[in-house]
Design a protein around this nucleic acid. Structure first.
Length: 391
DNA sequence: ACTTTGAGATCGTTCGGGTT
DNA sequence: AACCCGAACGATCTCAAAGT
């Protein structure tokens, strides 16, 4: 009686609105359709599983109400995963999305952890399978390693008009280059080093002096960049690398630096400030040693069909750019000798890295583009530094 | 048959380190 | 400032196995 009253009241919500009838009919059809289909297919919901004593194909037939009760939750919402259910007991559905995010984050972290573990295991395996290098052909006869020190100011970025204050160069040449062009042993045959007197901002900042270890007296007594270029050219002539007067290359040589900045940025900036044309023997053929070390590390982590020699470094997994000290470490070389950020010490240590790369069978080729006409915002007319361009 | 879950891969974005 | 590169992260998709 009460049920009949309830049904009447349900219908009485809005007799004019057919939506209630429509929903009821849809639910009825879906429920009976689903039930019919399962009976015909001899399938059942868990609640309708055969009793243990019943014959295999005999099912306890559900009532329409049972079917509806079982079916309705499927219509409304999917059953939540255990993780979500557990976390959302108190906070209801509002927190379900964040729970899901936390869950996926956990999954990714676990995935990454396994990946790293796998990579470490593979790295260990590879370290036990060292292969002797096959010497590559080395197209260059000499390598001019340099590490330029420049003026800088605390708080400024590399848009700053850095002026060169130290210019050291180490010449590396092959000791064992054969007729077919293969070689593995490089040695330092000569060194060039000079301080350079800045002209735009002759006074060094405290930050610069502390960073580079260069004193104000050293740069005050030094030649200007234009004069240094003459000295450097004479040095290269003396070492048979370029022709006197013309600057034409007599040997095939490649500049090497830690990072692409030294010639690409500092020399180009300095040439602008000093109003000198960038000599042809400086342009082109620049090898970024840091990048080459990184490539070598990647080759160790993902060896090609003919692996390179060497001990895969533990920090190779990071595949990040390394400073000179870290490069020495990954190449199993002795620690950095001298003072870091001292031009000549940096240069000598970079030379060691280049020598070791050659010994390990790395083909030393240029990998940095030089744009002599590159301009920065502070560049006004030739030689003019615009203060507002630095902001 | 359909859903859930776990695992893994891939893509795009953002951020930071690096050079004096 | 500009550039490159790797790490970290979020979103999305696929696939297989297990559960319903």
């Amino acid at each position: 009686m009460a049920m009949a009253d309830g049904f009447k009241s349900f219908l009485a919500i809005d007799p004019e609105n057919n939506i209630y009838w429509f929903i009821s009919i849809i639910i009825f059809l879906i429920a009976t359709g689903s039930l019919l289909r399962r009976v015909l297919l001899h399938k059942s919901y868990p609640a309708f599983q055969p009793t243990t004593n019943a014959p295999t194909n005999t099912y306890i037939q559900p009532t329409f109400l049972d079917s509806l009760i079982n079916f309705l939750p499927r219509l409304s919402l999917r059953k939540e995963s255990p993780q979500v259910t557990q976390e959302s007991n108190n906070s209801q559905s509002a927190s379900s999305s964040s729970s899901k995010m936390r869950y996926h984050r956990h999954r990714r972290r676990r995935s990454r952890g396994k990946k790293k573990q796998k990579a470490a295991e593979e790295s260990e395996t590879e370290s036990m399978e060292l292969v002797l290098p096959t010497l590559p052909k080395q197209p260059y006869d000499a390598f001019l390693v340099l590490d330029i020190e420049g003026t800088c100011k605390l708080g400024t970025d590399f848009n700053y008009p850095n002026e060169i204050i130290e210019l050291p160069v180490c010449i590396l040449e092959w000791k064992d280059k054969s007729e077919d062009g293969t070689a593995a042993t490089l040695e330092i045959v000569n060194e060039f080093r000079t301080f350079v007197k800045p002209t735009w901002r002759p006074q060094l900042s405290d930050f610069c002096k502390e960073l580079t270890g260069i004193s104000q007296e050293q740069v005050d007594a030094a030649p200007t960049f234009s004069e240094v270029l003459v000295h450097l050219e004479a040095f290269l002539v003396d070492n048979g690398l370029i022709e006197e007067g013309t600057g034409k290359r007599l040997k095939k040589f490649c500049w090497c630096s830690d990072g692409p900045f030294d010639i690409r940025d500092f020399v180009v900036k300095q040439c602008f400030i000093s109003q000198v044309e960038m000599p042809l023997w400086v342009q082109g053929d620049v090898l970024d040693v840091r990048s080459t070390v990184l490539q070598w590390m990647c080759a160790q982590a993902d060896p090609p069909t003919t692996p390179l020699s060497g001990t895969p470094p533990s920090i190779a997994a990071t595949r990040r750019a390394l400073n000179i000290a870290a490069q020495l470490q990954v190449l199993d070389l002795p620690p950095f000798e001298g003072r870091q950020h001292s031009g000549i010490d940096d240069t000598r240590n970079i030379a060691k890295v280049v020598t070791e790369l050659a010994r390990r069978g790395v083909c030393l080729l240029p990998n940095t583009a030089i744009l002599p006409g590159r301009r920065w915002r502070w560049m006004g007319k030739p030689g003019q530094v615009l203060e507002e361009g630095m902001i």
